[in-house]
């Protein structure tokens, strides 16, 4: 049953992923990305990451994609969408792309065959693995420093957005005063 669900979710994630890079209108792309994220959240649940599945749905399809929708409403509404035509072709462009894809595939297969991961014994899942409690103990225990370092990242983002959002005149006046 779980295997079936994981295959279905994986196929859905892939189908929505194709839609993300092929849909014409931005709003449709947002819907496709929401589908992609929800399918991935199902896979997170299959691999017992309940809290991270919740965070994924709440932060990604909740906060980030709403931000995208706002920007689409601000910028793209009423404008015709540009077609995704290719620019001037570089010599060997297709060959380079195919080569890069083949290299990626080869790297994955070789890594999978050669690396110890393929034969390493699966770890024993601790009791309550993936719950808010276990993730919280990790966050405020052994991983306290990375968790604390996310605070300056978010602060920098907030300050950056506030500076970006200021009208140009305000910014120039501030520069003049300094």
């Amino acid at each position: 049953m779980i295997t079936l669900i994981s295959y279905l979710a994986g196929a859905a994630a892939l189908a929505f992923g194709v839609a993300v890079v092929t849909t014409r209108r931005s709003v449709h792309t947002v819907v496709a990305l929401i589908g992609n994220i929800l399918s991935l959240a199902v896979l997170f649940l299959v691999y017992q990451a309940q809290f991270m599945a919740f965070v994924e749905v709440a932060v990604y399809s909740g906060a980030i994609l709403i931000l995208f929708l706002f920007v689409i409403a601000l910028l793209a509404a009423g404008k015709e969408e540009v077609a995704n035509e290719y620019g001037p072709e570089l010599p060997g462009q297709l060959f380079g792309g195919a080569g890069a894809a083949a290299l990626l595939a080869a790297a994955i297969l070789v890594a999978f065959r050669l690396h110890a991961l393929a034969t390493a014994a699966a770890g024993v899942l601790p009791k309550g693995y993936g719950t808010v409690q276990s993730v919280g103990i990790g966050l405020f225990g052994g991983y306290l420093l990375p968790f604390e370092l996310t605070a300056p990242v978010l602060l920098a983002a907030i300050v950056g957005v506030v500076v970006l959002a200021k009208p140009r005149t305000v910014r120039e006046e501030a520069k003049g005063d300094a």
Binding site: Y47, Q48, A49, F51, M52, V55, E56, V59, Y60, A63, I64, L67, F68, V71, L117, A120, A122, G123, V124, L125, P126, Y129, G130, S134, V135, I137, G138, L139, G142, Y143, P146, F147, T150, V153, L154, A156, A157, I158, G160, V161, L164, A165
Partner: peptide, 30 residues
């Protein structure tokens, strides 16, 4: 792989990745 090796560290890393992604989206969309 967090599930495979029974280590919650992989999930913590996903938490950090999501945080950085949120910051990136805010700046990028701005």
């Amino acid at each position: 792989f967090a599930h495979r090796f029974g280590d919650v560290g992989g999930q913590i890393f996903v938490f950090v990745v999501i945080t950085v992604a949120a910051a990136e989206v805010a700046i990028g969309l701005g």
